[in-house]
Amino acid sequence: MTVIDIRGLRKSYGGRAVVHDVEFSVEEGEIFGILGPNGAGKSTSVECLTGLRERDGGAVKVLGLDPARDRQAVRERVGVQLQESRLPDKITVAEAMRLYSSFYPNPVDWRDLVDRLGLGDKVNSRFGKLSGGQKQRLSVALALVGRPKVAVLDELTTGLDPQARRDTWGLIESIRDSGVTLLIVTHFMDEAERLCDRLAVIDAGQTVAIDTAAGLVRRSGLPHRIRFRAVGEQVEDLVAQLPTVSGVERRGEHLVVVGGEDSLTEIYEALHLRGVRVTDLRVNQPGLDDAFVELTGADRAAA
C-alpha cells in the first residue's frame, strides 16, 4: 500500500521557486530517505506533506488524505519531528509527554514509550537539562505518542555525537518494526545507506533519482578502482581486453585498473585461468557519497 504519494510538488517563497518538481512515493512499512544538499528543498517538501505549509502546485496524498484540505486528519495520523524546534527549557519530560498525549484522540501510553526510548529515568528532568541525544529521543517520543501511521523525522541526527547517532539508528529500526512507516530527511550518507530501504535524491528543488542506496551507486556509473600485484607475461594486455575494464596502468609490480562493478570478478577469473597469482589487492568502490555528488552536481557547485 502506498502511504505517501507526491507528484509535481511546487512551492515558491517570494517568487523564488524552492521546490519545483519533487515527486516520490513511500510504501507501507518502508524507511524512506530524502537526501539532498542544503537548500535543495527537502524540508519544504516535508512541510508541504505534513500540512505545515501550503503548496503552490502538485498533488500530495498522505494515507489517502490531502494535507492542504484534510489538515486536521493528517496531523492526527502523521507524527513529526521538526528541524530547529525545541520545547520550553523548563518543561519536564513527563509534562511534555502528557501535554502532547492530550492533543491526540488515541495516544499510546507515554510511560512505555519513554521507557522504550531510554528516557525512563529522565521523566522528571527538564528539557533544558537533557543531553543532545536525549532531546532528540524526546522529540521522537513526541512524534510517536499520537500512535501515528507515518512518522516524519527531519535531520534527526544532526548535531549528535557518533555513538548517539548509532543509537538513534537502532531506535528508528525498532520503530519501523512496530509498524510505523518512516520518512527520514538527512544529509548524512552513512545514515541513508545504513537505514533507508529506498532514497529520493532531491537537488535544486526537484527529484533527481529514486532508488536503493546500492541502486543509486550503480546508476551513477562511477568506476571502481582496483589495484593489485600480478607478476606474469602479458598480464596487462589480458586485463585490458576484459569487457568491463576501461583502463589499465602499470605501476611497478602493481596494476591499477579502472572498470565497472563486475571487473573484479572478471580479472580474478581471467588471471586464475592463466595461473597468475593476484596479491596485495585493494578495491576502491564508489560509495553513496560519490554517487550523491555525481547525481546532484555538488562538485560543480563547489568548483
Binding site: 505545515l52 496531523r75 492526527e76 513529526v80 520545547l87 492530550s102 492533543f103 491526540y104 513526541l142 499520537g146
Partner: peptide, 8 residues
C-alpha cells in the same frame, strides 16, 4: 511551530 504540527 512544533505545536502547529499536532492536532492542537
Amino acid at each position: 511551530r512544533r505545536l502547529s504540527a499536532t492536532p492542537a
